[in-house]
């Protein structure tokens, strides 16, 4: 039981950056934009988040710096792809190259520095409950924020008019435009939101996971977030399942070694990606039955005048 509790805690921690980054990207893709620069925005978020927290001693300010950094980078992306109608795939990749460089420059001054880890929730009586206490009431703020984001996003997408408009834009920007919706404006806002989430996800790593910054510490998590969005077939609820599944696989693979289970770790690591392909095929087959894939994903839109 104790071990199970510990594993769940570890899975939650490992999944949170994925969930944060993926929820941002989900909204971006729902608006019909494919930003492959998540990894770049994350790593800059990590560097700026650390810098902020290091300078002020505050996790909150660190997180805000991370968000801000992500937003700034996403604005570059928005300017390119929405303002100048440049191909989104190429721009996203270039953004990652830029992000890695920028984060290295920012982080160069912080070698061997450390900060305090993000505080965890503690409610007397609740946090000390056996088994569920720490899992439900003993996490750091990022975990709760990531879940709140998902709830907020579900509500936004399905219960508000603005959400409806955003989905309409993602499915058919030409008709949405013809109906008078400001396609580029809404997409820009979505891209900024995605940038902020990626920045926060990056900041999570030095603020809550390992309280120091090293270049390249995101280690490909931004790319996994991209895969997650597809795995979740663009549904916020499934994103939670997907993120925790990815997290669980990576944690259990380590535990399996400790238990002496002889499955090649690469096979276990590859499963989520193969599952994503299968999911993608399945949801695409039932396209007529209400597929959620944004039809205009990744396509350039220039309003006719």
């Amino acid at each position: 039981m104790e071990l199970l509790e510990a594993i769940i805690l570890a899975v939650l921690a490992a999944s949170t950056p994925l969930l944060l980054a993926a929820s941002g990207e989900l909204l971006v893709e729902r608006a019909g934009v494919l930003n492959l620069g998540v990894e770049g925005m994350m790593i800059v978020g990590a560097a700026c988040g650390f810098a902020g927290a290091w300078a002020t001693g505050s996790t909150l300010i660190g997180a805000l710096c991370g968000i801000l950094a992500g937003v700034v980078l996403s604005l570059v992306f928005a300017l390119m792809t929405l303002g100048l109608a440049v191909n989104q795939v190429a721009t996203g990749l270039a953004l990652t190259i830029l992000g890695v460089g920028v984060s290295g420059l920012i982080g160069a001054g912080f070698v061997g520095e450390r900060i305090a880890t993000a505080p965890r929730l503690y409610i007397p009586g609740l946090t000390t409950l056996p088994f569920v206490g720490k899992i439900l009431f003993g996490e750091d703020a990022f975990v709760y924020v990531s879940l709140a984001l998902i709830i907020g996003m579900s509500w936004f997408l399905y219960r508000t008019r603005a959400g409806l408009v955003l989905r309409a834009i993602g499915d058919n920007h030409v008709s949405a435009h013809a109906l008078g919706y400001p396609v580029l404006k809404i997409r820009t806002l979505a891209v900024m939101f995605g940038g902020g989430c990626a920045g926060l996800a990056g900041a999570y790593l030095p603020l809550a996971y390992t309280p120091f910054f090293v270049p390249g510490m995101t280690a490909g998590r931004g790319w996994i977030a991209l895969a997650l969005v597809v795995f979740a077939s663009w549904l916020p609820g499934r994103l939670v399942i997907g993120a925790y599944l990815f997290g669980a696989v990576s944690i259990l693979q380590l535990h399996a070694q400790g238990w002496g289970v002889g499955v090649p770790s690469q096979l276990m690591s590859a499963l989520p990606y193969l599952a994503t392909v299968v999911v993608l095929v399945l949801i695409s087959r039932t396209r007529s039955g209400g597929s959620t894939a944004p039809a205009a994903l990744g396509t350039v839109f220039v309003p006719d005048r």
Binding site: V76, M80, L84, A90, A94, I97, L98, G101, V102, L105
Partner: peptide
């Protein structure tokens, strides 16, 4: 890292 930034900026401008 400067080279990375350089490449990124260059790509943005060209695109």
């Amino acid at each position: 890292d400067i080279t990375k930034v350089f490449q990124g900026i260059l790509l943005f401008y060209v695109l």
